[in-house]
């Protein structure tokens, strides 16, 4: 199949970016990233600068293959990452627009690669549990109710790709932060640092310059792991109640 790609090209963080059109010959069995590999091989053979895009595991768990494809983070399919998108979902002759995540808190490094270290700093601020060092604990030492662990696990499937921020018209990181807060808070081990965690993570999220959530639901619709808005409600609950109940301010 013959495709026209309209790709965002930008030399570095400070350069003025622009769209560039390229023709590519792809196979319908290729993944989207393999199609981009073909394009880059063509560009290299023509002695042109290949398109920079991030990728690592190519099996939907690392959260690095972040592209906005025809206006949707990770492309048109529900619940998949870009690497899990295959060219059979496109037609011969299609024009595909490929853009990087757009959010001021995710500055562009080059072409389609953005700097998502803001997420790392949010995790560092409170997305952890403290455990004693030494002998490994027995995995089943603390009983956890089935539904509770299921809900925690659903939240824990967040791969931190940032599609929620990319999809949000306000570039809000609430879905990411709420998933991380929920997954720890729903478990007994996470309860110990609950108030500290939620306050510090929200503080860091605000400091990074993400926008405010206006409940549009765009994040939930485009999340490759289908993290739900109920997590954001939980974040709102936990943050509000902790602000009014703890004597210490984190």
């Amino acid at each position: 199949m013959k495709l026209t790609l309209k790709i965002w090209r930008q030399k570095n963080a400070n350069a003025q970016g622009t769209f560039e059109s390229h023709q590519v010959e792809a196979d319908e069995h290729m993944s989207f990233l393999e199609m981009l590999d073909v394009l880059n091989e063509d560009l290299v053979s023509q002695k042109k600068e290949p398109v920079s895009f991030e990728h690592d595991c190519r099996e939907g768990i690392c959260g690095t293959c972040n592209l906005v494809i025809d206006g949707r983070p990770h492309g048109p399919n529900q619940g998949t990452t870009t690497c899990q998108l295959h060219m059979r979902h496109f037609k011969n002759g299609d024009t595909i627009t490929i853009e990087p995540w757009r959010a001021n808190a995710f500055p562009i490094i080059k072409d389609l690669v953005v700097d998502r270290t803001a997420f790392d700093r949010i995790i560092q601020s409170g997305g952890y549990v403290a455990v004693n060092t030494g002998q490994a604990q027995d995995g089943n030492a603390i009983p956890i109710e089935k539904d509770q662990s299921g809900e925690a696990f659903d939240a824990a499937t967040c791969i931190g790709c940032g599609a929620c921020v990319a999809a949000c018209p306000n570039a809000s990181a609430m879905l990411f932060v709420s998933a991380k807060v929920s997954h720890l808070d729903l478990l007994p081990q996470g309860k110990v640092e609950s108030a500290k965690r939620v306050q510090q993570m929200v503080n860091q999220m605000d400091a990074e310059g993400f926008g405010n959530c206006t409940n549009t639901g765009a994040c939930e619709a485009d999340c490759p792991k289908e993290i739900q808005l109920t997590n954001i409600a939980r974040l709102n609950r936990l943050y509000t109640s902790s602000m009014f109940s703890t004597s210490k301010k984190y």
């Binding site: 965002w8 769209f19 906005v68 206006g71 757009r102 018209p169 306000n170 570039a171 926008g211 405010n212």
Partner: peptide, 11 residues
């Protein structure tokens, strides 16, 4: 929120 989003998507 407009400031946080920055540049809008082409599509």
């Amino acid at each position: 929120n407009r400031k946080a989003k920055g540049r809008k998507y082409e599509v």
